[in-house]
Design a protein around this nucleic acid. Structure first.
Length: 490
RNA sequence: GCGACGGUCGUCCAGUUUGGUCUAGGACAUCAGAUUGCCAAUCUGGUAACCCGGGUUCAAAUCCCGGCCGUCGCACCA
């Protein structure tokens, strides 16, 4: 389905919409989840917990969004997350000056070059604005982190640009108090903030967004010692590298044998991730793990795979899988002067763990689930819009509809509703024609509709209608609970 | 951030060229009632919008300026 259709559905059915939209100064890049979208997101997160956290015995924490400056000195965000920019004094155009110098002169500009030296380079090469030939102003800095001032003295701090920094700074305590053993996954769901220059396309590029991050702490000398790998050795991984014509489909085991994936630990987690996304309803045949080239990788990554999915907007990165080595713990250990080494019980030796991370974009995942689940079908000259969400992700699981309100059907339907509503996401609807009510439910992805008709009054059965096939079957009212329970099984 | 184009009920669109009849119209959606009684039916009625701010003018949805947002392109996406 197209981006525009998904967007329209999202606005009309309460999935998501612009933040502060009643005000004209609402900035771009901020979106809110409405009731249906939040429910879908919550269920997506529960699925993530089930398929990754609980399955693998990971530990989940919930850290703060505002973190001290030192954290980002240690993480490298203060120096690496800042781009040198210049503004044309005549037309006001802004340029990434380091890239511009490289482009014009072929001379590489090191990341930590002082602003005054960049100014000197501009003069030396007599660089002018490419748009209007005007002079450049002095070099400025654009940091993608949101700075905040704490307390009356406005102590320098930042909104975290990725959730994982809390995991790194909390690692030592969590590992000790939870009696951790390597390899250990520590996970977190929460918001991150990046002051994007040009946020675009609603949930796909936000300034405030949700991440579900998993940091797997491991002993770098034991990356191929993964007993759990056996569980996923036959899982198919879809691997891809730029320049290749097609995606390579291989089992996890084969991927290691052919050196497409560096070790068992990485292969294991790529497989878990694949199995998780299969259960979200995203079309896995439209996905790939793209191995990033050296120039594309983040500054902290030594090996990186992006889990990408094909959507109407092109290939979309949903998860960044980075082998961060000891970049983060080393940085935090050096800056904080705390030892972050742990003892690996396997050999009773101290080790500074390496980290393999699965950094998931929740908002992008939600968008992709919607796009891949949304269908328009022709039914008797009419277009039927159906959101074919997995039952366990659907914001509304079952609609409860009296065929009419007369002859006691309304009361009977309300009784059934009140018996179910505490345990399932139900929606009671008695207004309008039955067909219209079915269609409304389909648009929010409700997999089932229960209809109360005259027969119900005689034999205490209802019809259950299946969203995808529109077929119906009769079920005894006392069995509804069990039916729904079974249908929601993952 | 730059450039081009755009912004009217929940959604889509008409009206803007040439300022006045626009007290802003339609379709779909939505709400209430009637009717029907298993797939967006029908009838009646209702709710509901000119992105924000300033200017020009007797008069602004319409013209001008600024801002915000959106789409596309460039750049950016650690």
């Amino acid at each position: 389905m197209s981006y525009d259709k998904v967007m329209k559905l999202a606005l009309e059915r309460g999935f998501y919409f612009p933040s502060c939209e009643i005000y004209s100064d609402a900035p771009a890049g901020f979106w809110e989840y409405g009731p249906t979208g939040l429910n879908l997101k919550n269920k997506f997160i529960e699925l993530w917990r089930r398929q990754l956290i609980r399955r693998d015995g990971m530990l989940e924490i919930d850290g703060c969004q505002i973190m001290s400056k030192s954290v980002f000195v240690a993480s490298g965000h203060i120096s690496n997350f800042t781009d040198p920019v210049v503004k044309c004094t005549k037309c006001g155009s802004t340029f990434r000056i380091d890239r511009y110098i490289e482009e014009k002169t072929g001379q590489r500009v090191p990341e930590r070059l002082a602003d005054s030296e960049i100014d000197a380079l501009i003069l030396q090469h007599n660089l002018k604005c490419p748009n209007c030939k005007g002079d450049f102003g002095k070099v400025g800095r654009f940091n993608m982190m949101f700075r905040v001032g704490i307390g009356p003295a406005s102590e320098e701090a930042y909104l975290r640009p990725e959730t994982c920094q809390s995991i790194f700074v909390d690692f030592s305590r969590v590992f000790k108090t939870m009696r951790g053993r390597l390899p250990l996954g520590v996970a977190q769901i929460g918001k991150s903030f990046r002051n994007e220059i040009a946020p675009r396309q609603s949930l796909l590029r936000l300034r405030e967004f949700y991440q579900a991050e998993i940091e797997v702490f491991c002993n770098p000398s034991r990356l191929d010692e993964m007993p759990r790998f056996e569980e996923v050795k036959d899982t198919i991984l879809r691997l891809f590298k730029d320049g290749e014509a097609v995606v390579t489909e291989v089992t996890a085991q084969e991927a290691i044998a052919r050196d497409l994936v560096p070790n068992k630990l990485v292969a294991y987690y790529l497989a878990l991730l694949t199995e998780f996304y299969e259960k979200t309803g995203i079309d896995i045949r439209k996905s790939r793990f793209r191995r990033l080239s050296d120039v594309e990788k983040a500054f902290y990554a030594s090996v990186a795979f992006d889990f990408e999915v094909e959507t109407s907007t092109g290939w979309l990165e949903l998860v960044a899988c980075n082998y961060r080595s000891d970049y983060d713990l080393k940085g935090h250990a050096n800056t904080s002067k705390e030892s972050l080494e742990v003892v690996d019980p396997a050999d009773q030796k101290k080790v500074l763990p390496h980290v393999f991370e699965l950094s998931m974009g929740i908002d992008r995942s939600i968008y992709t689930i919607l796009e891949h689940s949304y269908y328009e079908e022709q039914v008797k000259e009419e277009t039927r819009a159906v959101l074919k969400l997995k039952p366990y992700l659907a914001p509304v699981v079952v609609g409860i509809l009296p065929l009419m309100t007369k002859e006691g059907l309304g009361e009977k339907a309300r009784k059934i509703h009140s018996d179910l509503k505490l345990d399932f996401d139900t929606f009671y609807d008695e207004s309008g024609s039955i067909g219209r009510r079915y269609r409304r439910l389909e648009e929010v992805g409700a997999p089932f509709a229960i209809t109360i008709d005259q027969t119900t009054m005689q034999d205490d059965t209802v019809t259950v209608r299946y969203r995808d096939t529109m077929q119906q079957e009769r079920i005894k009212v006392p069995e509804l609970r069990q039916f729904l329970h079974n249908s929601l099984r993952i």
